[in-house]
Design a protein around this nucleic acid. Structure first.
Lengths: 190, 190
DNA sequence: GTAATTTCTTAAACCAGCTTAATTTTTTTG
DNA sequence: CAAAAAAATTAAGCTGGTTTAAGAAATTAC
């Protein structure tokens, strides 16, 4: 049914066929076109979103009215404002598709019910969250030790798929650079 | 025995007295003086560390041989290089006490055994990790939207306990500022 | 297939925060 | 309590990356 979803879970925990069937009952599949919203500023982030296919961005509007992208999610990545999700507080973020996408949503009520019925999912999410913490420690270290130029080059060589798929000005935003500066760096490199 | 530890767990999951007794068997208490190391660059981070009392910093040595602090932990915070812990890779970090401290350590073998024997701990760590992800999303947003001056003022007013307890040059390092610039900002404010 | 819109580039002026270097103040240690 | 070490301050000059503004190129939608 949702091969990326099930494969991702099976990467970390054992799930028999019966559990897969139960699991499917907790998720809501969404088929979205390009530029559709899953969350808008001021709303509560009621769901965790799994990218079965496509691409999402998360951003907020800064004081100069620019959209400031803080995260991307490609296939088999999770996306959510966890603070809003856990504490049911209004979110400052927008979550929007960059491409036509297939998303699986689990709202907080289903999430809790699922964790009670399928304890291996508690383990799965513990591992996913721990890996997210590890990833953010690593990204953070790069932020401390690299200049913005190095950070851009590092990102470009580490995630060429992204550079293919996502407009350059969005990558600039995500990396905390102006599009003009990215343009200058690219000129310099070639 | 370790009141901060047990209270923190009970904040998120139910633990009966028997489970508390079992739990204590998995952790190793450490009494450390000021400036002692729990982890050094090149070693594998074999344990998760819980601060029962005292204060820790995590840092790496950058290309100019400065210590670059990436995290602090006060009472009832966890500290680890999660990437090194999970994948058993050598860590680039040092973890060191700033003050005389009482630390609880759980190594990866005990961690796995504990999660199998006490499933509520799987839930506890899922919640702790999810809250860590939420915290890093928030910190990240501040990094995008604030100037370094604003970031410093925000930190100072949000965590006055830190400013009391930790030398100014360490806060500067953590915030990605030079000690000279912090000094200038403080002069400006008063 | 072409008009509209979105994305990317170029270039010059500017500034937030760093570097360097020397001095002063505070804390630690025997 | 004195000497040594650690931490904080001051100040001048500099630079990586931004801002502003305009035009060119590519993509999208009808």
């Amino acid at each position: 049914m949702y091969p990326n979803f099930i494969n991702h879970i099976r990467k970390y925990v054992e799930v028999d066929e019966l559990s897969v069937a139960l699991l499917n009952q907790y998720v809501i599949p969404l088929k979205l076109k390009r530029k559709e919203f899953l969350l808008k500023e001021g709303q509560i982030c009621h769901s965790l979103y799994f990218v079965e296919k496509g691409c999402l961005k998360m951003y907020f509007i800064d004081d100069k009215l620019n959209e400031q992208i803080t995260q991307f999610a490609l296939e088999h990545w999770w996306m959510a404002d966890h603070f809003s999700f856990m504490d049911r507080k209004p979110s400052p973020y927008f979550i929007q598709t960059i491409e036509k996408s297939e998303i699986l949503a689990i709202n907080s009520y289903s999430f809790e019910a699922m964790l009670r019925e399928l304890p291996q999912m508690e383990r799965y999410f513990r591992i996913v969250m721990q890996r997210a913490v590890a990833a953010s420690q690593l990204r953070n270290k790069y932020l401390y030790e690299m200049s913005k130029e190095e950070f851009f080059q590092h990102f470009s060589t580490s995630f060429p798929e992204f550079v293919q798929r996502v407009p350059q000005y969005m990558i600039a935003s995500y990396l905390g650079l102006t599009p003009q500066y990215v343009s200058e760096l690219r000129k310099k490199k070639v």
